[in-house]
Design a protein around this nucleic acid. Structure first.
Lengths: 234, 234
DNA sequence: CATCCAAATTGATCCAGGTCAACACTCTCG
DNA sequence: CGAGAGTGTTGACCTGGATCAATTTGGATG
């Protein structure tokens, strides 16, 4: 029987700087001489990097339980983590402290390395989505992921607050913000999704949504279990 | 003073199945019930996955020293590793054995987890390349990477044997094989590269090549050190 | 309430790259 | 030697999504 993730992470608490965040708050990753470990404890975050020519990209969406080593981010300028939900919490741990703790407790070492592996798999999947799907399929994939992760089942269907703006979606899916807006409108017209107030989305039928996206079964396997147990099996 | 990577990996040898490969040989990753660790010891390999509709994708290029946990690959059908050079060697280690060894020697645990982190960073960079660059810039980025990794300096410039076919390049860069052929022809016409026999490329000036690719400095940082020291600092 | 500003929508136009098809090159095998 | 298969090249054409521009929406603020 493995210890619960929370218990494992407890050991890092004395070494961690807790950062309570509000929506859109940024945590810069560049300019740090030493490696750092970030633990997402609460809320959703976007790992963002700048490209030359003032272009930005959202490399991945981070969920509670994720941990990010700065070594797992490529040396791009302006790397940062942005809070995507109203309130969130991140722990920042100096790598030297994390390393010591990991050498003391193999469970912690395993937790961190498994989490990094999981992040790698998600990146690879995201690669496949960007590289192989059409715009509409990409948006369907993103909404499917969010439904699986943060959707709440109600009589009207799965409801969630959209944590990404149109621009964020565009930066994440390698699309244009205008195009994203068009696609979302089209999906609304098709009845795949509906809006319920500012930034709140309703998905009546997840099956309909998944039928729009060729990689739905993989998404289900990568994000679906997260609905039932907050942190994927480790 | 850290032990040399070879020395660290030596511990895994008794638990490893050595696989000697010839070009195009495939190692299937799917269908394995347990997690597995693969260590690339010699040669170049391509991590490939199938998409629905019989589409394939090359998620990443693996170099000697890389290690791949199967948990770091998304659950896509037909995941496999393909040998891209004439002769190569891969070690396959059962995860349970690897885990025990890693718990015994923190150096090994660190090595593996650092390698996975490095692979994550490369995936994220590749994401940025696919998502943000034009076809021509993508090809320039790939050739820059290969020059940095396997290019040999000669009086005529940097020379290397192209390990990827046109189709491979297309599958890696999210382009069409026809388009790749066109782009390569254009680059040849511009003098960025030249062919020297079957599958052998010459790059007269790496500066010219890098000036074609907005992410050249990042590539240099991720792959450039590898030229000087076979395994990136860990 | 009116004003302001950022984000979203929508229309019109354009082009990089996809698609399809014809053809060339290399290698292997009989 | 020729036939066949696999891979690469090149041309003609088409389309998904980028770009540019105009307009709308929805908060925030005084």
């Amino acid at each position: 029987m493995k210890p619960a993730p929370d218990l494992i992470l407890q050991q890092l608490e004395p070494h961690a700087v807790r950062i309570a965040t509000r929506k859109r708050q940024k945590i810069a990753l560049t300019g740090e001489p030493d490696e750092t470990l970030y633990l997402v404890r609460k809320g959703l975050f976007l790992a963002r990097a700048s490209m030359p020519h003032a272009r930005h990209q959202i490399m991945s969406i981070l969920y509670p339980g994720d941990c990010v080593r700065s070594a797992a981010m490529p040396p791009l300028d302006g790397s940062e983590i942005t809070a995507a939900t109203e309130s969130g919490e991140v722990w920042r741990v100096r790598w030297s402290a994390a390393k010591t703790a990991m050498e003391t407790d193999p469970n912690l070492a395993r937790y961190v390395s498994d989490r990094v592996a999981n992040q790698t798999a998600r990146l690879a999947l995201h690669n496949a989505i960007i590289a192989g799907l059409t715009g509409e399929e990409r948006v369907a994939a993103l909404i499917t992921e969010l439904v699986l992760r943060i959707g709440k089942q109600t009589p009207a269907g799965f409801v969630f607050d959209m944590p990404l703006s149109r621009t964020d979606i565009a930066e994440h899916l390698a699309l244009n913000a205008d195009t994203v807006s068009r696609i979302v409108s089209r999906m609304r017209a098709k009845g795949l999704i509906a809006v319920a107030g500012r930034n709140r989305l309703v998905c009546r039928s997840i099956e309909m949504l998944e039928s729009e996206c060729p990689l739905a079964t993989t998404l289900e396997r990568m994000h679906g279990t997260a609905v039932r147990q907050p942190l994927p099996a480790i």
